[in-house]
Amino acid sequence: MDLDRFLRDPQSRRRFFRASGVSLAGGSAVFLAACTDDTKLSQEEIGPDESDAADVELLNSALDLELMAVAAYKAGAARLKGDVLQVGKLFLQHEQEHADGLIAAIKDAGGKPNQARATYDFPELRTQRDVLRFAIDLENTAIAAYIDLLPKLGEGDLRATAAAILSNEAEHVAVLLGALGEEQVPDAFVVGKVT
């Protein structure tokens, strides 16, 4: 299943970040293939998932990070100029895309997505350099969180999706480091850091 389809498909999205270790590659695949039109599947037909509560908690944790990143890029935009401002806008869009996918997954799992906080306790961002450094910290925190999460995912497509997001955060780090005039790929292994 490709990523685009995965993000549109509720049955897959609701398994996003599943930590139960249950693989659905066999019977569920046959079941889904037998469905002539999955748009007809109501939530009741799909049925409750015993791991939904855990899913929602994990999804909301990831969503919190993505929403914080969105807020950070918005807050920092005022200090950015020229090409760096364009980069900030692009990365804001990427984080919003990640958040949108997570929100959809939480709703599909019957959960309530966390809202962005009214305010965030960000450090004072006086200069473009401050914003870039803070953005790198946020991105690295997200990378570490996703890497920590990967082994808890039971289904392969979900792990692939998480890896696709964390690799995008790694790309962001490379660009941000470059904007600071620093080595863009400092290490052979990208592990992020927990702040």
Partner: peptide, 21 residues
């Protein structure tokens, strides 16, 4: 294996950074 999944992802992310450059 969980650690191998993490190692694979950290390598994949590194290759993604290569692509940026």
């Amino acid at each position: 294996d969980g650690k191998l999944l993490q190692t694979g992802a950290s390598i994949m992310a590194n290759e993604a950074q290569h692509l940026v450059v």
